[in-house]
Computed example of a mutant assay.
Amino acid sequence: MKVVVIGGTGLIGSKLVAKLNEHGHEAVPAAPNTGVDTLTGEGLAEVLEGARVVVDVSNSPSFADDDVMDFFRTSTTNLLKAEADAGVTHHVALSVVGTERLQGSGYFRAKQAQEELIKASGIPYSIVHATQFFEFMKGIAAEATDGDTVRLAPVRIRPIYSDDVAAAVGRTAVGIPVKGVVEVAGPDTFQLDELIRRGLAAKNDPRTVVGDPHATYFGTELQETTLLPGPDAHIAETRFTDWLAQQA
C-alpha cells in the first residue's frame, strides 16, 4: 500500500517512513526538500498518484500566531483538495493531546483549525493526539525560562518517546479510518515542573525550576488535567528515565 508522509523527513516522519517500509508498505516522504510543498501545492499531485493513505506530520517553520495559522490552514486546504483529486481513502494527521483545551495559544488554535478542516473535508480520517515528546522537553524549558529560572505549572503530564508516537501513527495509518481522535501517551505521569527539573539535571543544566500554578504554557494557563489524555488512550512502553539513560 502506498502511503505518502507529509513532513516525512522530520523527527516523526522519518521514523514513520522507516517503520512502514519495514512492514512492506510503500512509504514516500514528502517535504520541501523532496520537491513537495503543501503551502504552494508544488509536487502534490505527482506524489499522491496511486496513494491510498496520506499521513500529515508536518509542522510550521514559524510559531508566530499569524504564521502558524496561515501554515496549517493553507497547507491542509491544499493537501485535502489534492487528496480528493487523487482518490485518497484515508487521511491521518498528528496533533496534540489537549489541543481543544489550549486555545489561549496561537499554535493550538492553528492545530484546532487544522482538525476542523480535516473533519469537514469528506475524506475518511483519523487524528492521532499524542502527549508531548521526550525530545520536546528542551523546548518547553526554553519557552518557560526567565534568566536562570524556569517557571512551570505543577500539573500532570504523560510524555512520550517519538519512536512510540511514530509506531502509533503507523498503526493508525494502515488501519480503518476511525473518523475521530485516537490518543497515545507515555507510561508514566509526572508533574510538569518535576519532569523538566529531571531533564535539566540529567544535562547538568544549572537553571532552577520553580513550580508556579499561574505559569503559562505557550500562552495558556493550565489546569491539573489539561495535558492528560482520556481513559481510552493507548499507553506506550518507553519510560522517560530509560530514555534519559540512553541519551547519556
Rank of each mutant, 00 (worst) to 15 (best):
M1D: 03
K2C: 06
V3R: 00
V5M: 06
I6V: 15
G7W: 04
I12K: 05
K15W: 00
L20Q: 09
L20V: 10
N21M: 09
A27W: 02
V28Y: 00
V36P: 06
D37L: 03
T38K: 00
L44S: 00
E46M: 01
V47L: 11
E49G: 12
G50L: 06
A51R: 11
V54T: 04
N59T: 13
M69Y: 02
L80H: 05
T89F: 10
V92C: 05
L94P: 04
S95M: 01
G98I: 06
F108V: 05
R109C: 07
R109K: 13
Q112F: 14
E116M: 14
I118L: 14
A120W: 13
S121W: 13
G122Y: 12
H129E: 14
A130M: 01
F136G: 04
K138I: 08
I140T: 12
A142Q: 15
T145S: 11
D148R: 11
D148F: 03
T149H: 10
R151E: 09
R151F: 14
R151L: 09
I157V: 14
Y161T: 03
D163S: 14
D164M: 00
P177S: 10
E183F: 00
V184D: 14
E194K: 14
L195R: 07
I196P: 12
I196S: 11
R198D: 09
L200V: 08
R207G: 08
G211S: 15
D212S: 08
A215N: 04
T216H: 15
T226P: 10
T226N: 15
L227D: 13
D232A: 13
I235F: 08
A236D: 12
E237N: 13
T238K: 11
R239G: 15
F240T: 12
F240Y: 15
W243C: 15
A248R: 15
